[in-house]
Amino acid sequence: MSRSLVVGNWKMHASRAQVTDLLSALLAGMPRLDGVDVAVCPPYPYLQQAAGLLTGSRLGLGAQNLAVEASGAHTGEVSGPMLVDVGCRYVLVGHSERRSLYGEHNALVAQKFRAARQHGLVPILCVGEQLAEREAGTTERVIGAQLDAVLDLCGGDSLAGAVIAYEPVWAIGTGQVATPPQAQAVHRFIRERVGRGAATPTLLYGGSVKPDNAAGLFAQADVDGGLVGGASLVADQFLSICKAAFSQ
């Protein structure tokens, strides 16, 4: 098993005041979590503020998306070098909301994964199936295609030190959650698909992770931590989830 990792995806939430309050509370609770890596992914406008607050701490900083291009006439985009420049270590790639709401297809997600690697960021590659796909029994085929796009473009070695987050799309923001055996089955499939060994990435579960279900999910053999949405905006809840990862 890889070292445990818990990442908070704030999505399009927060204000300057909320960033200060939330990060201050998280930093106060971090000394009790020496055995787990923790990161947060605020919206773009607050990355610089967050970086300043996190200076010298072990709480990592990530972004929610990046452009394929490193620079140029791409209005509204943010590049990997820019993210590195403001202090980011991680970046989400291919989150289900980017795929479903903004049309990011597998090939584009693979290009973004490659861009993250090229610029020294740790990509958190998000994969997962829609409810209809799970009900049709095509979960592995869908996730396999998402993984293969990255493997074909970047090669298996590109996964060394990377992170893959399994997001059952039907469980994101719905209050539903995959059972621990369901999560483990998909994580085991991912582990086998990308190969076990030195290049094995850290595998996170993301899909309505809460303090009351985190321990059961993180206890699974191939679940190395969580990608947390709504609960990451509440300091006590997020710290409780991090403690659940620490205890495994």
Rank of each mutant, 00 (worst) to 15 (best):
V91E: 00
L27H: 06
C41H: 01
T179S: 15
D212Q: 14
V40G: 06
A198M: 08
R32H: 14
L23W: 03
S57L: 02
G216I: 04
G120F: 01
C88T: 00
A28L: 12
N213W: 03
A219V: 08
D212C: 11
G29Y: 06
S208L: 05
A136K: 07
V6A: 04
G103I: 03
K243L: 12
A63H: 04
V84D: 07
L151Y: 04
G229V: 06
P201K: 09
F238V: 07
A110L: 02
D212A: 12
G76R: 07
A149S: 15
A116M: 09
K243H: 15
A70I: 09
R89E: 14
Y44H: 12
R3S: 15
C126Q: 00
A70V: 13
A160Y: 00
H95C: 04
I190E: 01
L121Y: 00
T139D: 03
K112F: 04
L59E: 00
W170S: 07
L92D: 04
C88M: 01
G137Q: 04
A178H: 08
L53P: 03
L61F: 06
L26W: 09
V209S: 06
F246R: 13
R16M: 11
D152R: 15
P31R: 10
F113K: 06
L83E: 00
T174Y: 07
C154V: 10
H187S: 08
K243V: 11
L92T: 00
M82K: 09
A221G: 08
Q220Y: 09
M30C: 11
A115I: 00
A149P: 05
G29V: 07
G62M: 05
P211H: 11
A245D: 10
G225E: 02
K243A: 15
S232V: 05
V228Y: 07
L33A: 10
V209E: 08
A160I: 00
L121V: 03
L217V: 12
R99M: 09
I124N: 01
S96E: 05
A221H: 12
S232P: 04
V127D: 02
Y205R: 10
A39K: 03
P180D: 12
V84L: 13
D148R: 12
S57Q: 08
A70G: 12
A214Y: 09
L239E: 08
P81F: 03
G29T: 02
D21E: 15
T138E: 11
A73M: 11
S158R: 05
F113Y: 15
D224N: 15
M82L: 12
V7I: 15
F189P: 01
G103F: 04
G80R: 01
S232Y: 04
